[in-house]
């Protein structure tokens, strides 16, 4: 669906303030006048897709008929991919800036939430060997 090739140019990575790394492409210039720019239009469509995904999520939860359920779930999924394509294009154009979290901060949270594993029923200390082995009952399927 999204085939813009792999030319993302060189990532602009610089340090700002503390040690947080900024990840972004060089910005594609758009006019800053009062009229809507291409960037504004893409942003507006992204808002539309976000609105549609929430609305279709509510819809799919309330469908009765199973065929309607399957179609609406599929539409929800495709709408998510449309939003993702728009996001990717905006990132490629340099209109989205990400800040990388500090590795120490991530490690700290990992420690904290690993500790909470003990709160699960049937918790065992070999959790890491089979942590993703359950859940098959809820794989996407046709009803």
């Amino acid at each position: 669906m999204h085939n813009q090739g792999g030319q993302y140019g060189s990532y602009q990575q610089r340090y700002s303030g503390s040690q947080s790394q900024t990840i972004k492409n060089p910005s594609t210039q758009v006019s800053k006048g009062t009229e809507m720019s291409d960037r504004d239009r893409l942003n507006d469509i992204l808002s539309t897709e976000k609105y549609l995904t929430s609305s279709f999520n509510t819809f799919v939860l309330e469908t009765s008929n199973k065929n309607l359920f399957n179609d609406v779930l599929h539409i929800l999924n495709e709408t998510h991919h449309a939003a993702r394509d728009v996001f990717n294009l905006m990132f490629e154009k340099g209109w989205y800036t990400l800040k990388q979290e500090q590795p120490q901060q991530i490690a700290k949270e990992y420690q904290k939430f690993s500790g909470y594993e003990s709160q699960f029923v049937g918790h065992n200390h070999n959790q890491h060997q089979n942590q993703f082995s359950t859940g098959q009952d809820y794989y996407p399927r046709d009803y």
């Binding site: 594609t28 291409d38 239009r41 893409l42 897709e49 394509d85 294009l89 154009k93």
Partner: peptide
């Protein structure tokens, strides 16, 4: 209304 071809194509696809 778009001038950028990539943006135009993406919007048409959507």
């Amino acid at each position: 209304q778009c001038s950028d071809v990539q943006v135009k194509n993406q919007l048409e696809q959507i």
